[in-house]
């Protein structure tokens, strides 16, 4: 996926990365902006000792969304992690799905309120989203 590095817009703090990709869903472009924004968070952003969000984690999250932005799927929530990772989440349709991009503990966690808990590897993330797509549709 192509990426451009914004230059000269910060005197200090982390580098700012902007990930660019074709629109795949109405919310996809905004999601990329959100991920890019996360890379601008400075050390200690969580009020404690959080690390900067790592560019490769942001790129991995953006690449995942490029594949998971199926037509009609609701926009996910995208949160930074204190270890420098990024988490993509859906909480709807009786599902809590969390895709964690992190050096420490990458993976997929699914809690189905009609079933139970499932943990998968990141390589299974897109297929997991596809399998739950009817319940993740935007209402």
């Amino acid at each position: 996926m192509p990426q451009q590095r914004a230059a000269g817009d910060r005197g200090e703090g982390p580098d700012v990365y902007r990930v660019v990709a074709p629109d795949a869903s109405p919310w996809y472009s905004a999601a990329l902006d959100r991920i890019s924004d996360l890379t601008a968070l400075a050390v200690g952003w969580n009020g404690y000792d959080a690390r900067e969000v790592k560019a490769d984690m942001a790129i991995d999250a953006a690449a995942f969304l490029a594949k998971a932005a199926f037509p009609g799927i609701a926009p996910p929530s995208i949160t930074p992690l204190a270890d420098g990772g990024v988490q993509v989440e859906w909480h709807r349709g009786g599902l809590d799905i969390e895709i964690t991009f992190s050096d420490d503990e990458p993976g997929v966690y699914i809690e189905d309120r009609q079933g139970g808990e499932t943990e998968l590897s990141l390589t299974e993330a897109v297929s997991a989203i596809a399998s739950y797509l009817p319940r993740l549709q935007e209402s």
Partner: peptide
Amino acid sequence: RVHPKEIVWNENDRCLRPGSGVFKDPEMS
């Protein structure tokens, strides 16, 4: 403390929640 970017809307419970990532640190302040 919770940073604003760590707070997500939970449609299942119809409320705002801190993301689970808030509680990831094995030695959480």
